Simulated assay, not measured.
Amino acid sequence: MSEGSGGSERENEPRRYDECTWPEIDAAAEDGATVLVPVGATEDHGPHLPLDVDRRIVEAVCEPAAAAREDVLLFPTIDHGYLPHHMDFPGGITIDWRTFVEYVIDVCVSLSHHGFEKILLVNGHGSNHHLLELVTRQVILQYPDVHCAFLSWWQLEDVREVAAAVREAGPQGSAHAGEMETSIYMHLYPDRVDMDAAVRDVSYPESRHFNNLDLAGESRPDDSTPVTMMEWWSTISETGVMGDATVASAETGELLLEAAVEGLESVLEEFASHPIREIDDHHARTVENAEYDPFRPR
Rank of each mutant, 00 (worst) to 15 (best):
268 L>R: 01
240 G>P: 04
190 P>C: 00
267 V>S: 02
189 Y>H: 13
176 H>R: 02
177 A>M: 03
161 E>K: 13
77 T>H: 03
193 V>N: 04
278 E>D: 14
133 E>G: 15
223 D>M: 13
164 A>N: 01
262 E>D: 15
95 I>N: 02
298 R>Y: 13
270 E>L: 11
20 C>M: 14
31 D>S: 14
297 P>H: 05
258 E>R: 15
57 I>C: 05
171 P>N: 00
235 T>S: 14
74 L>V: 02
98 R>G: 12
218 E>M: 01
236 I>M: 10
169 A>K: 01
203 S>E: 09
33 A>R: 12
15 R>Q: 07
223 D>P: 06
64 P>L: 02
194 D>S: 10
58 V>R: 02
267 V>T: 09
193 V>W: 03
160 R>V: 00
59 E>S: 09
87 M>P: 02
11 E>S: 14
128 N>I: 05
270 E>H: 13
75 F>C: 09
294 P>L: 08
32 G>T: 04
86 H>W: 09
27 A>I: 00
94 T>N: 05
144 P>V: 04
91 G>W: 03
275 P>K: 02
102 E>F: 13
16 R>H: 10
58 V>A: 00
74 L>A: 07
46 G>I: 07
6 G>P: 05
279 I>H: 14
13 E>G: 15
88 D>L: 01
211 N>E: 11
204 Y>E: 07
237 S>F: 05
140 I>H: 12
177 A>Y: 04
184 I>D: 07
205 P>I: 03
50 P>Y: 07
291 E>A: 14
158 D>C: 06
60 A>N: 11
192 R>Q: 15
7 G>Y: 14
244 D>E: 02
26 D>Y: 14
